[in-house]
Design a protein around this nucleic acid. Structure first.
Length: 632
RNA sequence: GGCGAGGUAGCUCAGUUGGUGAGAGCGCAGGAUUCAUAACCCUGAGGUCUCGGGUUCAAAUCCCGAUCUCGCUACCA
């Protein structure tokens, strides 16, 4: 949290920003709410109370150390005291780093708070645990057996992974002052665990929307579907359903079609590194082109695996699919109609109907079925493809019929006007169908088409799809407008450059870390010089490095300390290859108590700088400095 | 390390319960055309379906092993 801004103000700001971004892109919600509302507090508290009254929770009460000065409960590692085993007076509540003993805070002699140095009092704290393990059988049956065929492989597999590993009771309360208070008399200073109350927020929002909220949540024929990213699967598929089951009067999710991740230009999206395309900036750079972005994001959605958004691909898809296939189709249909049919919707002459006409009618109907089916199966990529494919069929139909060629025969054969009429009649009806089918994906373009076809928005009702009598014959239509303009090469280059420039800027200008840890002091307390002087910092040279087996993050380093070679285990394996760091200078905390990691004793610790992304940089002297040199 | 999801033409992806010579879109090459946003339409080239074993009359599809990518998880003070 930045200086002087309350969590509530942060929520306000982002709620507004995100809300307006959705609006700009034509994404609307029946209710777009937040969990800081009163109705949500009531709802989630009532939910909790119901489970509580039913005895669904297990409480675990424990005497925990409490810092009276800071008014917070202290996590084990924020308690320091004397180790009962080796008498080290800097032992932590969970472990003594000198002798490596695993400790509990109670074992410490003369414990004190690491936050304020004050002597913590023992205070009893109680937390309510939801015994997920008791719902394992239910979840296994419900998901592993019941959802095997309907849920996506990535979702099903992730759930199976959790269930096979075995579920544990999970604390549903926290000691904090931000959040929804636990609705019990003996729970002062406690709030609901965020993943307990957040999904209940869906229920709260429904209540906010309508008095009929229970129709959405308590009727057997309601389908509850969660559209989420893969990082939220466990909460929506395991924890929330178990909660709903425990409560007893709610329906369970029908499906949770979680998507994978979307990268940008080959890199993970990161707001802190500013590797992102911001909606409000897109809106500025590409005015009136919301549908272009909507199209590309949907056509390239990570439905089955992680995908990559690139501006080049954006350009290709907009230019080749939206502009050349869809936009151009509509345009040529309108232009031809103006040239060959006097600017009016031509009649269809049954007597001149041929096989191509019948085929097109079938195609229109089939397209509706396919789009519908795909949407119901949550296959939006496929659905969108079918929309474009229908335009493709329209282009082919027009090409096969060649009304502009037929027009040249009119002087000798005036009856051929019927062929032209039939062709354009169908082409226009197909355009109307395109408007309906594209509406869920490209609402701005659908609206534009309505205007061009001079029909009311109601024509876009889904039931109208497949019909070939949507436009009335003899109805005069205006000149067409261009639906999609092309994206120029320079625009692609500009966007890519923008992305890179900004991200670079962010990397050099240390971003604010946004660690949400309210019970932990942001800055450490002042220490006396004597305390600092106890730390023996030295320059070391890495002489050897190898990966530690069975540990992804650990490297076993040999460090030349001048007088000795030390073994230090460090959690940097994800950032550096062993062979690349040999010879590097590092700053070593030389008098840190030894600690065993993965069975290897580590004698000291090397200093690294870490940015908000968790990227590591060596802290080292600017110039070559002999091993063993002191750092002060 | 354990677990999950992926690895199919240059790119993005389809490939139902194993079975007619492996598909689509884009890109590329060639052709045709001009109503249209140098758009559309036609034709074509391109893949030892990540690799190695196995089961089978038959495997992209099933089994075992390896490898790469992403995620969850453990180990990082």
């Amino acid at each position: 949290m930045k200086e002087g801004i309350t969590p509530h103000e942060v929520v306000d700001r982002y709620h507004a920003l995100i809300s307006s971004s959705f609006e700009q892109m034509g994404i609307s919600f029946d209710i777009y709410s937040r969990t800081s509302n009163a109705v949500h507090h009531e709802t989630s508290q009532a939910f909790f109370k119901k489970l509580y009254d039913d005895g669904a929770f297990e409480t675990k009460e424990s005497e925990q150390y409490f810092d009276e000065e800071k008014q917070v409960f202290l996590a084990d590692r924020y308690i320091v005291g004397t180790c009962p085993v080796c008498s080290n007076d800097k032992a932590y509540g969970d472990q003594c780093e000198k002798c490596g003993s695993t400790l509990s805070p109670d074992q410490l002699i003369n414990p004190h708070s690491a936050l304020s140095q004050s002597k913590p009092i023992k205070k009893s704290t109680k937390h309510w645990y939801f015994p997920l393990n008791k719902y394992e059988d239910f979840l296994k049956q419900w998901i592993l057996e019941g959802k095997k065929d309907s849920w996506k492989a990535n979702v099903y597999g992730q759930c199976k992974s959790w269930l096979d590993a075995g579920l544990q009771p999970r604390a549903m309360t926290r000691d904090s002052n931000w959040g929804v208070p636990v609705p019990l008399t003996d729970a002062a200073g406690k709030v609901l665990y965020v993943w307990f109350d957040a999904p209940i927020g869906y229920i709260s929002a429904t209540k906010e929307l309508t008095n009929q909220w229970s129709d959405y949540w308590q009727q057997e024929d309601t389908k509850l579907v969660h559209f989420i990213g893969k990082d939220n699967i466990v909460f929506h598929c395991i924890i929330f359903p178990a909660m709903l089951k425990a409560h007893g009067s709610y329906i369970l999710p029908e499906n949770v079609p979680a998507n994978e991740f979307l990268n940008i230009e080959g890199e993970k999206v990161s707001t802190s590194r500013n590797w992102a395309v911001w909606v409000h900036e897109y809106a500025e750079d590409f005015p009136e082109m919301q549908d272009a972005l909507r199209y590309v994001l949907c056509a390239n959605a990570p439905e089955t695996k992680d995908n990559d958004f690139t501006w080049k691909d954006f350009q290709d898809r907009v230019n080749n699919e939206l502009a050349a296939i869809l936009g151009n189709y509509v345009n040529r249909a309108f232009v031809l109609m103006h040239k060959l049919c006097a600017g009016r919707v031509p009649s269809f002459h049954q007597e001149a109907k041929d096989a191509l006409d019948s085929q097109l009618e079938q195609d229109i109907n089939a397209a509706k079925q396919k789009v519908e089916h795909s949407i119901e199966e949550y296959r939006f990529r496929d659905a969108l493809f079918e929309v474009i494919d229908l335009a493709r069929k329209g282009n082919k139909y027009m090409q096969d019929k060649e009304p502009w060629i037929v027009a040249k025969t009119l002087t000798g054969h005036p009856e051929n006007q019927k062929l032209i009429d039939n062709c354009l009649h169908h082409c226009l009806q197909l355009t109307a169908n395109l408007a309906i089918l594209m509406q869920p994906f490209l609402p701005f373009t659908a609206a534009k088409l309505c205007k061009m076809m001079k029909v009311v928005p109601r024509m876009l009702d889904w039931e109208n799809a497949g019909r070939i009598d949507l436009l009335k014959p003899n109805y005069p239509l205006p000149a067409p407008e261009i639906l999609f303009r092309k994206i120029e090469d320079v625009e692609v280059a500009t966007q890519v450059q923008k992305l890179k420039d900004r991200s670079l800027l962010n990397n050099t200008a240390t971003p604010k870390t946004a660690k949400a840890a309210p019970t932990v002091a942001a800055a450490k307390d002042t220490i006396a010089f004597d305390d600092f002087a106890k730390v023996d910092l030295r320059i070391g040279h890495i002489t050897a490095a190898e990966k530690v087996e069975k540990a992804d993050k650990l490297l076993k380093l040999q460090i030349d300390m001048g007088t000795e070679i030390r073994t230090i285990v460090s959690g940097i394996a994800l950032h550096f290859k062993p062979e690349d760091i040999i010879g590097k200078q590092v700053v070593v905390v030389a008098n840190l108590a030894p600690r065993k990691m993965r069975g290897i004793e580590s004698n000291g610790m090397i200093l690294m700088a870490e940015n908000a992304e968790g990227n590591l940089v060596f802290v080292a002297p600017e110039a070559m400095t002999p091993a063993g040199s002191e750092v002060r």
